[in-house]
Amino acid sequence: MMYRTMRNIHLFLGLFAFFFLMMYGLSAVQMAHNGWFNLKPSVSGQSYPVPQPVPSDARALSRYLMDEHGLRGELAQVRTTGTGIQFRIVRPGTVHQVEYIRDKSELAVQTSVADFWGMLNRIHHIAGLHHEYRLINIWSVFIALVSAGLILIAATGIYLWFKTHTERRIGTILLILSLGYSLTLMVLMRTAG
């Protein structure tokens, strides 16, 4: 009964997390071997009229671009320059670089859109529940669920292996080798100063 329960937990969690785990695995390959991939985003430029009265700050300008022109994301990297304001509206895979120059009547927006690999990369880096753009928070919740699931998958995997009596000897050797190698390195690195 216990074995069956563990096997089902292992199976259901693994199947639920399949796409998330593939995302992590594939994007990790891309990051570890970035020379194998070309992550150059496609870039396009656009300009929008400056609203009247002119908003005084980046938040108001970004709100205008979101409400009136459909840009989506959260405000980032606000910089006040001598001539105006620069800021970004960012969501995973898409960056709108906005420049407002006081003397001009237009907002210049340069949009970079990542390809599939770039998108996986950005999803891999999603963290935290503090984002203004709610979709990122929703991603975060599922990433946390999958992470907790991964711990459970590992734990139930150990149980399932241990209950397979014919595999105990070789499995024990492999587990000891693995733990010996990884834990030794972890301790050596953490205590390195």
């Binding site: 711990i151 998958i153 590992a154 292996w161 397979t164 587990l175 972890m186």
Partner: peptide, 12 residues
Amino acid sequence: MYVGLLNFSILL
């Protein structure tokens, strides 16, 4: 199964 055992700690 063997791969899982070898990766146990890093999965955690």
